[in-house]
C-alpha cells in the first residue's frame, strides 16, 4: 500500500450489490469502487443480494453486445485482498441458482443473518 492512501483509520466497509449486471451500469461502477477502495487498507466486505447475485453468474457473454465482460474482474478481488465476499442463500434459490453457478468462491448466508452483517459496518455503500 502506498503512503498516499494511508489515512490511518481502518473502517468496516460493506459494498451491497443488489442489481443485475449489463441492464444498467451500477454493477460495473460498483466493482470499480471496490477495486479503488481496496487500495485504502480498509476492512472490506462485499455482499450480493437480490438481483445482485446475477453479477457473479458464470459464463456471462456480454461481449457480443459490445459491452465489457467485467465479471472476470471478480476473480481478481482476492488479489486485492478483498476476501469477505457474501451471497444470500435465498437470493440464489429464488432465482434458481446455487453457489455452483457462481464464478468465484463466496460465503453464503441465510437472509436472517444479513441484518447483523449490515449492522456490524461503519460504512455501507449500496449500488
Amino acid at each position: 500500500m502506498d503512503d498516499e492512501n494511508d489515512i490511518g483509520v481502518v473502517k468496516r466497509f460493506l459494498y451491497v450489490n443488489r442489481r443485475a449486471p449489463h441492464g444498467s451500469i451500477y454493477a460495473l461502477e460498483s466493482l470499480e469502487t471496490v477495486l479503488i477502495g481496496a487500495a485504502f487498507d480498509q476492512d472490506v466486505s462485499v455482499l450480493f443480494v437480490d438481483d445482485g447475485v446475477f453479477q457473479l453468474k458464470k459464463d456471462q457473454q456480454p461481449d457480443a453486445l459490445g459491452m465489457k465482460n467485467f465479471s472476470k474482474t471478480f476473480r481478481a478481488l482476492e488479489m486485492y485482498d478483498v476476501e469477505k465476499i457474501y451471497v444470500e442463500d435465498e437470493s440464489l434459490s429464488e432465482r434458481g441458482l446455487s453457489v455452483d453457478d457462481l464464478l468465484i468462491d463466496v460465503e453464503s448466508l441465510p437472509r436472517n443473518k444479513i441484518g447483523a452483517l449490515m449492522d456490524a459496518q461503519d460504512v455501507v455503500l449500496s449500488f
Binding site: 443488489r18 443480494v49 449490515m118 449492522d119
Partner: peptide, 29 residues
C-alpha cells in the same frame, strides 16, 4: 449498532421496501 435504512421507491412499483424489511436488523429505523 443500529441502522437507519432509507427507502425511496414506491412498494407498488418496486420490491425495495420489502427487500429492506426482510433483512433490516431489529432496533433500527
Amino acid at each position: 449498532m443500529a441502522t437507519l435504512n432509507i427507502v425511496n421507491k414506491s412498494p407498488f412499483e418496486k420490491h425495495t421496501l420489502s427487500q429492506c424489511l426482510s433483512r433490516a436488523a431489529p432496533g433500527g429505523a
